[in-house]
Write a protein that binds this DNA or RNA. Structure first.
Length: 752
DNA sequence: GGGGGCTATGGGGGG
DNA sequence: CATAGCCCCC
């Protein structure tokens, strides 16, 4: 054993954990309760494999977030040194994307394929609905997306879908009989755009292995001799089938170790199925099972509460989670009248805990069922001067300006990327509107090619043609640059040459400057990417291309972001909190219709999943657990009244402090922040007396004339172009006095 | 072709 | 309440 670096990690494990680490060969199942040292087992198992001589690049370790993978690598590194970097550790999506970057050509995709996010997918679906003339109220884009996604996750091709009685009957009954056709078109559109959605990253990996062109399957089967899968309860059918393709072959020793907890399965809405754990025993009958039942994280009351709650679920793998951590502090339940008061009481309690127990902000987290609930807590934390950070919600990469620049980058790497094309063809404005774009889209569809490929043969007005040829030249120019420069240099070049930076600089409003800031921090991020000199597993030389950068960022999420070592309270959804732990946890909004969500109430299976979600929430706490609910809250613009969540009643009463009642005098006079004040403060427009206004015939208007406009006031005509569009300077308009007005519609009065 | 304003509608979790 | 999408106006 390698004793030069590290230490004897086996001493840090209990007996069962140690067995789970040292049973390296053959299939292994680890059932790991919350706080049972699961990460420790996974980490040391990998370190152990490396220590007994397994080359690190033969180890495939699939985790739920990239951050978890990164942290694991760091911990492995303390045991085995720099070899840890060579382990293939990451999420299913990110590792498969990396592999597909070398292999996608086997599947008819460019190796520099684009990854479509869910907004892109939705936009593709909308385009299809328009082209097929289908009603979006019946064919709800989100619903279609999720049906396509689950078809893919269950390996049902469009062809198979169309001949599947059960699916077709379901669709007919739900008045969406064309779904199979939409699915078919969707797949073909993505292929033509050289784009894969999130499901495709899995599906194409499956196809790649299944088709086995150039013995690709054998290559990866040989390479990944040891496979570890974390959070196995959250894998879907397709993910499991891929694992089987990798593990099951003639020479295989079936060295696969899956780690999971059926009680923490919370992703069935995206196709995850607990069946996978049950099926695993069936598929690998010689699998050895280890149950980690000792909870090292939480105190007795929290563990008892968790056990009590989860016992209301019928189907589960038998286990008894226990702890020897005693505590004076029981679980607190706080009841309030309004959501606003809930926010205040949570903030009060945070102050109290910091004083009484000496907690740092970092040791505290507020968990909610829906991201929309964060607002009241933000308000009070800000008011109390407590630093916080919100995870989730609108991520950085979903901001408009970021998506705009990204679209240029994407189009540069992959000109067939239709979604990127649509986004920037008229941004900045270059007079290429909806009508011309729709014409192009239809033409591309008719010829089964991408929009970009369609341009040279497109039949359109001379003016539109001129605009679009210029645009093509611009992109060609970007592509040339991308061939010889790194991601940062190209991105900087594009940000400037595309006009995005100038456009944002010209916008002097607060939002404008924050957009520019975002662009700059994105560019900083790209520079960081370029300067990072760690070789990814599978790489023989550093790849700092734009294409590589795009692949990297397409799959990172908020949960992957590092806490920048600031002392902040964490606000996040329960889903996002999975795998994390905090000394003090607040689970808020415990009301019927909210947690459990109203969408789950009708279906016992979904209700069980909500319960598991609650189980995940409370087991994040080490010592202090506070549960809150409000009798009434603002939901969708009106006050709603909800009963306390059933989950509160499922907690054994002996774990709970006496319920803290509603404050007798609720705090009035706290200003509520109301919406719709915008219009008052907004721009002061010049006033023109309507009764005096006498517009002239537009034909009379010439360059240099002084004119009057009903809304913009007095202006001077700077120029009139061949399209009969006048550029007029209105000096009474504060923000952007330069207006382009089409004379055929404009009402202008000549002043001289 | 582009922008502003109004209405209808949704309403969850995330790779 | 937020926002997407539509319609209308310039």
């Amino acid at each position: 054993m390698n004793q030069e670096v590290g230490y004897n990690y086996l001493n840090e494990l209990n007996e069962i954990q140690r067995d789970a680490v040292t049973t390296t060969d053959g299939p292994v199942v680890v059932i790991a309760g919350p706080g049972s040292g699961k990460t420790r087992v996974l980490t040391y198992r990998i370190a152990h494999l490396i220590n007994i001589g397994i080359p690190p690049w033969q180890i495939l370790s699939l985790t739920f977030t990239n951050k978890a993978a990164r942290e694991m690598k760091e911990r492995i590194q303390t045991v085995v040194g720099s070899k840890a970097q060579k382990v293939w550790a990451g999420t299913f999506h990110s590792l498969f994307a990396r592999i597909l970057r070398y292999e996608a050509h086997h599947l008819g995709f460019p190796n520099d394929f684009t990854i479509y996010d869910s907004d892109d997918s939705k936009s593709v679906i909308n385009e299809i609905l328009n082209q097929m003339g289908l009603d979006k109220k019946t064919y709800v884009p989100n619903m279609i997306r999720s049906r396509i996604s689950s078809a893919k996750s269950n390996l049902i091709t469009p062809k198979n879908y169309a001949v599947n009685d059960e699916l077709m009957t379901y669709d007919r009954m739900n008045r969406i009989p064309m779904l199979h056709a939409i699915y078919d078109r969707y797949v073909r559109k993505c292929l033509r755009s050289g784009a894969m959605d999130f499901d495709d990253l899995l599906l194409m990996m499956y196809k790649l292995l299944y088709q086995n062109q150039d013995q690709v399957r054998e290559k990866y089967q040989r390479q990944f001799e040891y496979i570890l899968v974390d959070e196995f309860q959250d894998t879907n059918y397709l993910q499991y089938e891929i694992l089987k393709l990798l593990v099951r072959h003639d020479k295989s020793k079936e060295n696969i170790c899956i780690v999971g907890d059926d009680a923490q399965s919370i992703y069935s809405f995206r196709g995850a199925t607990i069946e996978n754990i049950l099926q695993f025993d069936h598929d690998f009958p010689n699998a050895q099972t280890f149950k980690l039942e000792r909870n090292y994280r939480s105190t007795e009351h929290i563990v008892a509460a968790a056990n009590g709650v989860i016992s209301y679920n019928q189907r589960q793998i038998k286990k008894q989670i226990w702890t020897d951590r005693t505590s004076e502090t029981k679980i607190k339940i706080i009841k309030t009248i309004t959501d606003n008061e809930e926010g205040k009481r949570v903030a009060d309690t945070i102050i109290e805990q910091k004083n009484r127990y000496g907690l740092n902000n970092t040791q505290i987290a507020i968990l909610y069922r829906t991201n929309a609930q964060s607002r009241v807590f933000e308000e009070y934390l800000r008011r109390y001067n407590i630093a916080y950070r919100i995870y989730g919600g609108l991520s950085f990469y979903q901001r408009k300006e970021i998506k705009d620049l990204l679209a240029y980058l994407r189009l540069t790497v992959n000109p067939k990327d239709n979604e990127a094309f649509k986004r920037v063809i008229n941004y900045p404005k270059r007079g290429f509107g909806k009508t011309s774009l729709n014409k192009l889209i239809d033409m591309a569809e008719d010829n089964s090619i991408s929009i970009f490929e369609c341009i040279p043969v497109a039949d359109m007005s001379a003016r539109a043609k001129a605009v679009i040829m210029d645009f093509m030249k611009l992109i060609a120019n970007f592509r040339m640059k991308a061939q010889k420069a790194n991601a940062y240099e190209v991105a900087m070049y594009i940000a400037k040459k595309s006009g995005i930076i100038d456009l944002l600089k010209a916008d002097t409003s607060i939002e404008g400057s924050s957009r520019l800031e975002n662009i700059n921090s994105m560019l900083d991020g790209i520079q960081e990417f370029v300067e990072d000199d760690v070789l990814d597993p599978g790489e023989t030389e550093l790849d700092k291309s734009l294409a590589k950068y795009l692949q990297n960022i397409a799959l990172i999420t908020d949960a992957d972001e590092d806490k920048d070592n600031k002392d902040v309270v964490t606000l996040m959804s329960v889903h996002a909190a999975k795998g994390l732990e905090f000394k003090s946890i607040f689970v808020v909004g415990l009301e019927e219709n909210l947690f459990p969500s109203y969408m789950s109430l009708a279906d016992p299976n979904q209700l069980d999943e909500e319960r598991r979600l609650f189980y995940v929430a409370i087991t994040r706490a080490e010592e202090y657990l506070t549960l809150t609910y409000a009798n009434s809250r603002y939901q969708y613009g009106q006050v709603r009244f909800n009963d306390a969540s059933r989950f509160l009643e499922e907690i054994p009463p002996e774990c709970v402090d006496a319920i803290i009642p509603i404050q007798q005098k609720p705090t009035f006079g706290e200003p509520r922040i109301l919406g719709n004040f915008k219009s008052i403060a907004s721009k002061a427009m010049p006033k023109v007396n309507v009764s005096d206004f006498m517009p002239n015939d537009p034909k009379e208007i010439k360059e240099g004339m002084k004119v009057l406009h009903l809304k913009f006031g007095e202006g001077v005509v700077q120029s009139i172009d061949d399209r009969n569009v006048a550029s007029i300077y209105f000096d009474q308009v504060p923000d952007n006095p330069d207006k382009r007005i089409m004379l055929q519609y404009a009402k202008l009065q000549i002043l001289g």
